[in-house]
Nucleic acid binder design. Structure first.
Lengths: 197, 197, 197, 197
DNA sequence: CATGAATGAGGATTCATTCAT
DNA sequence: TATGAATGAATCCTCATTCAT
């Protein structure tokens, strides 16, 4: 089984290289040569591990959104109550200016693609669904605790949470000022709380 | 006796063709040939009117965001009071599934580029600033009327409005279901109202 | 007849513009647009007066070599004796660093073309023949005066004169130092004198 | 079992193809497709081995002038005395009508470019310097032997030798008659001898 | 005559993909 | 497995030429 593992490691290595390259340079500037350079392997390797260029990006989106989801998921597990859970969730989303910039640049590339390509859209949908579960869980708990509006539909409200998170982080990305990160973090949390109450 | 169209008309014609092509096909699939085909002119024309491909997209983003802003701007002028103004604003943003899809696909492409390219970012910033003026005006009026929270900073809150609008519409775009358009419209308006109150 | 004259004037104007452009930019960088810009006329004019781009250059070479020949021709008419005639000839060839640079840049472009294209070659041949006449005249006079070797074939020796002139001026051009102009001038004259004696 | 040719071999192969194409067709008619066709490789290969078209020509001029210099250099090594050395040098320059035509066509293209472009000019300067060394060596020996004018500056005179060689060969090229090759060869040698004595 | 908008062929360049080693 | 040489389709861009006004 060592073989298989090695292969998976190599793939992850390539995906991470693709992620870095994509974040730095953007979709249309990234070539397989550049990804290979980032990964410090030869150009042939990328083709050995992936069917074609598209496949790399498909897998990258899957890999990325899974990683994000796992991080978010574990972050809410640390808390018991709804509001701390929500705070922890938002905190895990607003990791740091560097991480958010790196991820959202790439994520915007993917959203742009997803708006026309159903393969990307479905992967994103899975991510949305996962996020929705997190949100629903928090909301349901909060409703039981009596801290959130009991008339809210957890499913709908959790989608709204994600919409607001993305809206805030995209706008923060466009402002291009690291010191605004905290302000957007707080603003985002405050807005979500207002909506849930 | 059809005279030659004036230069500016032709440029707009090409920009609209570029917009359509971009919306249909996405950034990396759009070639100058395709834009020319959409505009039903020869390939050389695009180069005659624009320095290069990049210039077309730069001008397109400017043209598009200006157009959107004008539409939004005139929509709020129709109302006197804050809440109807806000409703009118949001209504002008959520025009129709077709229009929103067409615009947001292209806008996502531009946001992705703007995240790495300051030229695009500055154009988008101008758009944000314009939207912010609209928001500020509504909020200030609402605060005078006593319908909005008087402690809100109009400038900050107006940015939050835009973030929420974009967040909702991007998510709607990803859901790829036209009938959700109304629901997202209402949801967006409701969320903004909650935040402003 | 005024019409005709005006046309010829305009053509000369365009040819001079082409000469300037060619000297500044070189064959492959010169476009009809550039020539038109140098002549401060619209692009269409160049096509109105000349069949096509090639025709401009053909006529330019003719015009240029005629102009040079006339200048050389009139310069030797000023003197009576062989050696002063020769000196005057060489002086008229080594006009100034600026003029020589301008001419020889263009002339090299034409020689390069002439080496493969018989149309250019024939025009140059006419120039060579004209120069040969000048040389022959000087040599014949010098032989009568007893200052030149009587066994020289005026025809052959005059070709050698031209070869040496071109050789020196091309090398001077490559040295790219204006102050060497006088030295090459003297060296050229001295070499020719040695050959003729 | 033919191994892949080494990179340097392939580059030389391409340079030779470029040389042939350039000689046949001239600077502005040579495309990368044509060079590739001459080399019997695909279009992409030229870009694989060279940064761009310009780089091919830069390297070609370097390669060509080096080759010429080596040939000239070894030709004078065969003789001991000044005049035989000079004869051998001139003989190596006037190789054959075919070779001279092929080289001087290309060389004229480069001289034309060099007159405006310092990169080409510097490469040519290196060639001139190399030729100058050959000439200086011959002249110095001849002065010691007492067969050349002792007052000549070897450096200057050697430049004059090169000017005369180029002047003669360019003129021969323009005459476009192979049978004149010998006559120009002899004429060139005779002229140089007159200048050195 | 003059203008400059429009055309489209042609060329440099890029890059995903293939494949021999 | 891994490499990187080779391929050629695809694309941006240039520019001579045409032609309506």
């Amino acid at each position: 089984m060592a073989r298989y593992k090695k292969t998976e490691e190599k793939k992850s290595h390539l995906l991470y290289a693709a992620f870095q390259a994509l974040s730095d340079l953007g979709y249309d500037a990234v070539t397989l040569q550049i990804i290979s350079d980032y990964a410090k392997v030869s150009k042939g390797v990328a083709h050995y591990y992936f069917e074609n260029k598209e496949a790399i990006f498909i897998e990258l989106l899957t890999w990325l959104t899974d990683k994000i989801f796992k991080k978010e998921s574990s972050s809410i597990a640390l808390e018991e109550k709804a509001i701390p859970k929500l705070q922890s969730y938002i905190r895990s989303v607003f990791i740091s200016p560097e991480e958010n910039r790196k991820f959202y640049r790439v994520y915007l590339d993917f959203l742009a693609k997803a708006s026309r390509n159903s393969v990307y859209r479905e992967i994103n949908q899975r991510f949305y669904d996962n996020c929705s579960q997190i949100g629903s869980e928090i909301i349901t708990i909060g409703q039981k605790e009596g801290v959130f509006n009991p008339h809210l539909s957890p499913k709908e409200a959790s989608r709204e949470i994600r919409a607001i998170i993305d809206g805030y982080l995209i706008q923060w990305l466009m402002m291009d000022e690291d010191q605004l990160h905290d302000i957007y973090h707080e603003g985002c949390l405050a807005s979500i709380l207002k909506i849930l109450k």
